[in-house]
Write a protein that binds this DNA or RNA. Structure first.
Lengths: 113, 113
DNA sequence: CAAGCCCGCTAAGTTTGTCAAGCAAATAAA
DNA sequence: TTTATTTGCTTGACAAACTTAGCGGGCTTG
């Protein structure tokens, strides 16, 4: 489950990277309802309270429960431990740094074609 | 249950009137997290998409399920028919006008001491 | 009547979410 | 290497959310 104090931006970035999507991929996948520029700001934490319908669009693309994103955004208390798409990155007691390194490495691996 | 197409403002106003609270009463009850001026704008429909934590504060004061308000605001599909505090005003096939007249009359009655 | 309080409401200002355009670096293609 | 495409990101402008101050009306109390 998403950790309580994990910030929304990091979580969104994890989801996107694991799914191997670019900012613009997501923009298209959401039918332009979330611009790549805005998603960038979300991931970098410059925006902390997006409107729920934005989260809904993202949840659909990332195949995550809408309520999960709402919870991470601080809009709801996290509901009953639903295992979402990136469960691996959240279930194994990874520190924030470890997680980040793994994600970086994942990108590296994929770039090797 | 709140009707699908019922707008948020009207619903909030109903709740407040039935509970016999003034705008300022609600402001105080929410610990100043919802100003009376802002609530007025909400009820008049000048603001249609308040941030969820606003709805959370109001739900607490009005003793309504948070999810209900979220649903009425269009942030969630209405969950399983929870009967909220003003069930009377929503269950008896009242038209919008009828409802409004009843609420006005309710205020009139109460004003009679 | 006058002084005071509470009511709903609004006008004006600040903040913040959101988008369109575009830039610099990385990658791919020629 | 040069050109073109993609990627993440920043900037500037706009709209919508949200705040603060205050008005005018209706009650109450002296």
């Amino acid at each position: 489950m998403p950790e309580k104090d994990q910030n929304l931006g990091q979580y969104l970035k994890e989801l996107r990277i694991v799914k191997n999507l670019s900012l613009r991929d997501v923009e298209k996948a959401t039918n332009n309802s979330v611009s790549n520029a805005y998603l960038s700001q979300l991931e970098s934490g410059k925006i902390s309270k997006p409107s729920p319908h934005i989260l809904e669009s993202l949840a659909k693309v990332y195949e995550v429960h809408y309520e999960d994103l709402m919870a991470v955004a601080g809009y709801m208390r996290s509901s009953k431990t639903k295992k979402s798409g990136v469960a691996f990155f959240n279930q194994h007691d990874l520190s924030a740094e470890e997680k980040k390194k793994l994600l970086d490495y994942l990108q590296f691996l994929r770039k090797q074609k």
